[in-house]
Amino acid sequence: MLIEALLKSKAVPGVITITGDTPVADAVTEMNKHHIGAVLVVNQEKQLLGILSERDILHHFTECSRGLSVKDIMTPRSRLIIGHTDDTIEYAMKVFTNNKVRHLPVLDGDCIIGIISIGDVLKAHLKSLEHDNKMLEDYVTGASFVID
């Protein structure tokens, strides 16, 4: 499965973005409102500047009470690992595991397409395994089946 198909199957399409000047408290409110663990940080032209994750907030928790902005604690674009729509979910799994990250921004050139999480990838992988298992069961038992 490609990341493009995974993005299309997500329950909540699109991506939540904030600017670097957003106060951290407001970013946390936005993340809680949408039940998400990370937001992409963009400039006025909607170009990706970085990502703010729960981990970033926790690492700077004591400093956040001093009124920091998102740009002060986000992971900058220069350190981001970017996914593309034609990458596979297997690639994404390796990125998550090898880099100990849980969110992967997806770009097409400089255009933000979406963001996937390790949970999105796991859900898609389990669905694929369930389908494969059903197909094998049908084959072994001689049941007729239709290939998607």
Rank of each mutant, 00 (worst) to 15 (best):
V28D: 03
A38W: 10
A11K: 11
D86N: 07
G142H: 08
Y91M: 10
P23C: 07
L68I: 02
I89A: 01
L126V: 13
G119C: 09
K8P: 00
D21W: 02
S53C: 11
Y139F: 08
E45V: 07
K71W: 04
E30Q: 08
I147Q: 09
P105L: 12
I73Y: 06
G67F: 11
I73M: 06
T97H: 14
S144W: 10
S128G: 01
E30W: 02
E137T: 11
D56E: 13
T19V: 03
I112P: 13
M31K: 10
S78A: 08
H131F: 02
L6V: 09
V70N: 01
S144Q: 13
K94W: 02
K8Q: 07
T19F: 08
A25H: 04
Q44G: 04
I82W: 07
L49H: 06
V146E: 14
I147P: 01
S9N: 12
L58A: 10
V146P: 03
A25L: 13
N133I: 07
L104E: 07
E54M: 01
E54N: 05
V28G: 06
I112V: 15
D86C: 04
H34P: 02
A38G: 12
A143T: 14
K33Q: 12
K127E: 13
A27V: 01
A124F: 04
P13R: 13
V121I: 07
E90Q: 08
S53M: 11
I81T: 15
M74H: 01
G20D: 03
D56T: 12
H34L: 06
G114S: 12
S69K: 14
C64S: 08
Q47N: 11
S78G: 05
E45W: 10
V140L: 13
G14P: 07
I51H: 06
M1A: 05
H35E: 14
F145L: 14
H84Y: 14
N98D: 15
L80T: 01
L122S: 13
V140H: 14
L136A: 11
D138L: 05
K123T: 02
K127M: 06
N99P: 05
M93P: 04
D87S: 00
L68Q: 11
V24N: 05
V12K: 15
A27M: 11
I81C: 11
K71V: 01
A27L: 02
K123R: 14
T97N: 15
K127Q: 12
A5I: 02
D108T: 09
S53R: 12
P23T: 02
C64G: 09
N32M: 11
D108N: 15
I89R: 02
H59W: 06
D110R: 14
D21M: 03
L136V: 04
G142F: 04
L68R: 13
H60S: 12
R77P: 06
V140C: 09
S144K: 14
L136Q: 04
R66H: 14
R79L: 13
P23V: 08
R79I: 00
A25W: 03
V101A: 03
I51T: 05
G67I: 12
A38K: 08
V24P: 09
R79Y: 04
L104P: 09
K46W: 07
S9L: 11
R79W: 02
